[in-house]
Write a protein that binds this DNA or RNA. Structure first.
Length: 483
RNA sequence: CGGGGCGUAGCCCAGCUUGGUAGGGCGCUUGGUUCGGGACCAAGAGGUCGCAAGUUCAAAUCUUGUCGCCCCGACCA
């Protein structure tokens, strides 16, 4: 990537570990150097710093609009769930019990019943739906909430797995199984489009296997993406609950022919984990690389020789002429330009705009793209149009690059040995046939370290037999080592 | 929960083996010179050495315990 990130002596900026030497350390370095997050007093809980939170706000804003466009309404449920309510659906509680945090005291008094901090809010939505749904005229109910949840994970990593994380959880109730299924797929598609169009992260859409599905769900659908190091990241899930929760919680309505029916439900969630995904899909050895659509600052203006007359004024003037359509900032700090270049590269700002006395004379400026390092001189007259075009280019280039990378790391295999050697040589997605038995799924994981990521909607016939047992194959599965 | 590593100024770390006045770099503050790829000079501020016991005339250093963090595995979004 050209000379971007090089210091005077030609070495790379030293604060960030080389991603090819130590990917995990590189990730941590980027989180810290880009000012995304800090560790907090509570183990496994991170502080979202302004820059990191701004990315989440941009995700939230754009995704929330899609939810509203598809007829969903936002609500807010309580933070705490009583033990008895949590236990109403047995698969659900069994799935979450090992990682819930409990509140047992109110002031100095012991509570009569302990309360858990929501790990997810199915139970709250269900008990509410049981009250407010009586007639088919009350359906569908399309609710969503933006909140944080707590899951007491044993090992944590900033954004990827924290004990408290921010998300949205959609919970819907429908009259028929078919409507619930349509909603489940609709929202999976919303997530997939969002990942590709906004986050520039290509995804594989598919269904989770029995053993990977959500606790209490009938079917779980997922979008899976591939990180730069070849590990998979579950990037969003959409569940069809059928009428299982409705039966456990007594959510019934009277249909048009005056018969009592159970509702069919869905839930779907998308979390701050994807900030980690952004880092690991687009980042490079100079730090973060943000797709323009989620970049808190899309263009950073670095004034050169800012003490000279007219430079700062010109920088501010450019800023205000652009700020209607572009998120733009002037770096007025008294650091040297070179320092600022590195700083904004680490933070992944898509475009740097340099303006100095020589440029002002010629009515021009220099812009540098974060994704390619490409440096061009632009006239100030058509700046807004040129920048908007460049931002669009960056957005699509990042998606294209990520797609190329993923495809280059997607292989087919017909034996466990082949899977294992591919995963060790060049980790990524492996397409292989599966007979459908959980035993084979477990064995693949045990032998190769790869779990089933999904049964993709787009099926291919790699072979007729299961990669593990050699019996007749049921479907083609994407496998991979996952975060 | 297993395996490894680390806790000394805001950050990164030296000092510990062989106990004896708390160190360096970066950052920060003030003044000046600089400014197209992490500038330089000068002067300053900043520490109960993670915590607790113990050994000792004396502990950052030795002993025991404890807490926390990071990395790698098993579980999860």
């Amino acid at each position: 990537m050209a000379d971007a990130g090089k210091a005077k002596d030609g070495s790379l900026v030293k604060e960030i570990t080389n991603m090819d030497e130590d990917f995990a350390q590189w990730y941590t370095d980027v989180v810290k150097k880009a000012d995304l997050a800090d560790y907090s007093e509570i183990g496994g809980c991170i502080i979202f710093r302004p820059y990191g939170y701004a990315i989440w706000e941009l995700i939230q804003k754009q995704m929330d609009q899609v939810f509203k466009d598809t007829g969903h309404e936002n609500v807010y449920m309580p933070l705490m769930i009583s033990e008895s309510l949590l236990q109403k659906e047995k698969d659900h509680v069994a799935g979450f019990a090992p990682e819930v945090a409990w509140v047992t005291m109110g002031g100095h008094e012991k509570l009569p019943e302990k309360l858990c901090i929501r790990p997810t809010s199915e139970t709250l939505f269900c008990s509410h739906y049981a009250k407010i749904i009586q007639s088919y005229r009350d359906l569908p109910k399309l609710y969503n909430q933006w909140c944080s949840v707590v899951r007491w994970e044993k090992t944590t990593r900033p954004f990827l797995r924290t004990r408290e994380f921010l998300w949205q959880e959609g919970h819907t109730a429908h009259a028929t199984a078919q409507e619930a299924q349509e909603e489940t797929i609709r929202m999976l598609n919303v997530y997939a489009d969002f990942c590709e169009n906004v986050l520039a992260i290509p995804v594989i859409k598919g269904q989770k296997t029995e053993s990977e599905k959500f606790a209490g769900a009938e079917r779980t659908y997922t979008i899976e993406s591939l990180m730069h190091d070849g590990q998979a990241l579950q990037s969003g899930t959409s569940h069809n609950f059928g009428d299982g929760f409705a039966k456990a919680f007594g959510i019934q309505y009277t249909d048009a022919s005056n018969k009592l029916q159970y509702v069919h439900q869905t839930s779907w969630g998308f979390t701050t984990r994807m900030i980690g995904g952004l880092i690991m899909v687009h980042g490079d050895n100079s730090g973060l690389v943000l797709p323009p659509m989620v970049a808190p600052v899309q263009v950073i203006i670095v004034p050169i020789a800012s003490h000279k007359e007219g430079v700062l004024e010109k920088a501010r003037e450019i800023k205000s002429s652009l700020s209607k359509t572009i998120r733009v900032k002037v770096d007025e700090s008294d650091k040297k330009p070179g320092w600022k270049f590195s700083e904004h590269e680490m933070k992944g700002v898509p475009i740097r705009l340099e303006i100095g006395p020589k440029d002002i004379e010629k009515n021009q400026c220099v812009i540098v793209r974060r994704d390619t390092g490409e440096k061009v001189t632009l006239s100030l007259d058509s700046l807004e149009t040129d920048l908007e075009k460049a931002l669009k280019d960056i957005q699509s280039n990042l998606l294209e690059k990520a797609r190329t990378h993923r495809d280059s790391r997607t292989c087919s295999a017909t034996s466990l040995e082949e899977m294992g050697s591919i995963l060790n040589a060049k980790p990524g997605f492996i397409k292989a046939m599966w007979c459908g038995s959980p035993e084979c799924e477990d064995k693949v994981k045990e032998v190769t370290g790869a779990s089933s990521r999904c049964i993709p909607f787009e099926q291919e016939n790699i072979s007729d037999v299961c990669v593990c047992c050699g019996k007749k194959a049921e479907s083609m599965v994407f496998w991979g080592r996952a975060y």
